[in-house]
Design a protein around this nucleic acid. Sequence first.
RNA 1: GGUCCCUUCGUCUAGUGGUUAGGACGCAAGGUUUUCAUCCUUGAAACAGGAGUUCGAUUCUCCUAGGGACUGCCA
Length: 507
Amino acid sequence: MTTRKVRVRFAPSPTGPLHIGGVRTALFNYLFAKKHGGDFILRIEDTDSTRFVEGAEEYINESMEWLGMTIDEGVKQGGDYGPYKQSERRAIYKKYADQLIETGWGYYAFDTAEELDALRAKAEAEKKTFAYDMHTRQHLKNSLSLSAEEVKQRMEAGEPWVIRFKMPEDTTVKTNDMVRGAVTFNTNTLDDKVLYKSADQLPTYHLANIVDDHLMEITHVIRGEEWLPSVPLHIMLYRALGWEESMPLFAHLPLILKPTGKGKLSKRDGDKGGFPVFPLNWQLEDGIAAGYRESGYFPEAVINLLALLGWNPGTEQELFTMDELIELFDIERVNKSGARFDPDKARWFNQQHLVRKSDDELATLYQSVLKEHGHTPDTTYVSQVVSLVKERVNFVSELWEQSAFFFEAPLSYDAKVVKKRWKGDVPAFMTSLTMILEALEKWDAESIKACIAEHIEENGLGFGLVMNAFRLALVGGGFGPDLMTIAEMIGKEETIQRINNAVEKLA
RNA sequence: GGUCCCUUCGUCUAGUGGUUAGGACGCAAGGUUUUCAUCCUUGAAACAGGAGUUCGAUUCUCCUAGGGACUGCCA
């Protein structure tokens, strides 16, 4: 093979929200392209007019943008190989469909969908399988079984027809898959797939795919494992069209499986397990399908976790930036077997990426959450809060429950902690403590601590007991960062106020 | 049913013709944190089964079992 510039494509169908498995396919294409200094193309495969869904194409673009996968050529971006939407390429496909007829690789068929359905049903009733293939084509309504005159008549009468591929007999087709190695098929087990339909003047996936990949000079086809069985057909099509010399290399990715149970990951699994299956939220008739973005995941975390589902660099590193992934990616290291999705590990990836972000960046994100709670504090203060609590959360949204007390007094107190810590002499002591603190001149963590320690000693109380009660008063529960730092940050007045509040409410 | 693909801890995986089969998530215990979380240490946890090749197989081959995909005028 000559050294062509690497060109890969991600070719989704706009039939709904992009699934996380599709996102990973896109990612592996993207990584491969960037790794080899090639082009990443987005092609919209909308040859099924009946399954078109409004907004799906925009959803795909928005997802790619959010995840940071830059598209070099596509419907939006343009390029020298357009159009990039198959419904706009009708004339192109017709030409090659006709070529297949002329060269004898294809034939016209007039069987209706109903007729074929009936044949399938009948075969099934007899515990057999119906296939439109070398054994049956002579007995069906097509240009192979009908006279040339009848074919002509039917077409002139406006009867709908399709073009089918005449799968040759007894031919061994070999492919050398980049992830699976040698795979061999025999054409005898293959059927005559529909390639083109007169009804909507559009090709089916197979023809459109091969024609476009050839015309767009695609060098590597990286797609899901569900396409592996179509490889022999595709290879035969390249052969039939005379393009075998420049045929792209194939790589079939393993599937992403359900966390538990059988089968591949589906929307239902996400609902059941409480994790997203889509990159972005998607409005459904009966609610919304959760997206990673809206669920609080960082795009870099999603990229990271998806990259490691079916691939690894062979080292023990697990956390990567997109640039590192591009640097390290090797399609040969992609696994062959399906990978179960693990929601726990997904959360872990987000936590890891969160901790690695700067306090300022997180503070900016946190500001919008704070605004929803009616607070618009100083950025420096938020940044300080973030630095104290960021290691205890997985998502930005969880920052609030871990740090609300920095912005407002507790509204309630954790009953368990109250029972355990707010007893005996504690209330009286806390009241006396407010006097002492009132008199404290220098309000910083160190001074507060020294002051309280001294007071505890004078009263002969347990240090742990007092500190936990103090925490309860300031925070409302038994959690949070260093208490003295909290007291320093919320200020003297507020600290005393909260102690008084607690004494009053917990009396 | 047919065709094709796959099979290392519960999960994601590394790995080799001779290893104490390594890491991560999760789980458990201990430590740090006078709290919670983080963090640190430790632990339990795997080569699907059976033949064959070989001095020796988790690693190579075959068979079985299990899992998966496809089997549309869908992609």
